[in-house]
């Protein structure tokens, strides 16, 4: 079976890669492009550790085929900071100790950014339900929710 040639945009950069038909976007990011920030916690869309944005929609990269990336715009955790300037969500996750083992953190950050881009002033309940697809086994979510609330406030400039 011949490989599929794909042209796409990742974190603003034009990227071309070859992949097999059955490879997922997560496989491509991690194994072919060296972008290992998205993690595979389940491979079935149940944990959110591989959260990325595809054309502005939050998705699990494990449930997207690599070939589907053709012509699309993909954003990953690696593109979240602007050079050495962290995104306010990243800063607040650090300040609130919103991570312990940290393996779920990239997925949470990508998902939380998608939330705040769409809804700058979410309630605690809205945050919790939006992030329900991101599993964390260490923190009990408390400090994560607080970090998102605090980042939202900072981003609103209040």
């Amino acid at each position: 079976m011949s490989a599929i040639a794909v042209s796409t945009t990742i974190n603003g950069d034009e990227v071309e890669f070859l992949c097999q038909a059955e490879e997922t976007l997560l496989d491509v990011l991690r194994e072919r492009l060296g972008l290992t920030g998205a993690k595979e916690g389940c491979g079935t869309g149940d944990c959110g550790a591989c959260s990325v944005m595809v054309d502005g929609r939050l998705v699990c990269a494990c449930l997207v085929l690599g070939a589907e990336a053709e012509g699309r715009s993909i954003e990953t955790i690696e593109g979240m900071a602007n050079g050495d300037e962290l995104h306010p969500l990243q800063t607040k996750f650090l300040e609130h100790a919103a991570l312990q083992c940290g393996v779920c953190t990239p997925g949470f950050l990508v998902a939380a950014k998608a939330l705040l881009d769409a809804n700058p002033d979410p309630t605690e309940e809205e945050i919790r339900f939006w992030l329900a697809g991101n599993l964390c086994r260490c923190t009990g979510y408390d400090k994560i929710v607080r970090a998102v609330q605090d980042a939202a406030q900072e981003l609103r400039g209040s």
């Binding site: 869309g45 998705v59 699990c60 449930l63 997207v64 998902a111 998608a114 329900a132 697809g133």
Partner: peptide, 9 residues
């Protein structure tokens, strides 16, 4: 259906 991520697809 599913999570926010699943909803996206």
């Amino acid at each position: 259906i599913g999570s926010t991520q699943i909803q996206g697809r």
